[in-house]
Amino acid sequence: MNIFRLAGDMTHLLSILVLLLKIYATKSCSGISRKTQDLYAMVFVARYLDLFTDFISVYNSIMKVVFIASSVAIVWCMRYHPMVRRSYDRELDTFRHYFLVGASFALALILHEKFTVQEIFWAFSIYLEAVAILPQLVMLQRSGNVDNLTGQYVFFLGAYRAFYILNWIYRYLTEARFSRWIACISGVVQTALYADFFYYYFIR
């Protein structure tokens, strides 16, 4: 664990918790893409299938449970909370996100480290995470305005991506075995999409 990864994990956690708490406190999810939230919940569930098979650290296990629980809670609120669901901007959230799921899964079937259920779902989660922000990006461009909640959420997510890239550079320089190009390329694509989002956010 280096400082960049810890900072990345904490900003990632903050992005999700701030979103969940604000949605719950204000009873509104206006401006938030439910499709992006669906994708993130799928990302965490698919990636953390190793929760019961591979123990890495107490920190890792707790964070995995928190990420799954909080992302599922956001989706639950947006779908089923009687007041929150009324504030959902359905007509602006039009991205066909199931294409992303299908394409990511197809890519995972082709590009993976081993042909096992866990490895394929792990690769799927990496590819899907890289593009999961797209429905939110499209929604932002359609609505044309960034409110505080969306802005903070994307700011923390962008910070998480930036710290993780620094973490990878650090690990690349300090660890002997570092050759997982699947995650690296996907991570760079994901960060580039956030850079686009930031650009749009700042010119507003």
């Binding site: 990864r5 994990d9 990632h12 190793d50 591979d54 890495i56 650290s57 890792n60 964070m63 995995k64 990420f67 792990w122 993780y164 973490n167 990878w168 690990r171 660890e175 075995r177 570092f178 997982r180 995650a183």
Partner: peptide, 10 residues
Amino acid sequence: KHSSFPKDEL
């Protein structure tokens, strides 16, 4: 020791 990048990350 787990140093298998990036499976030891979140």
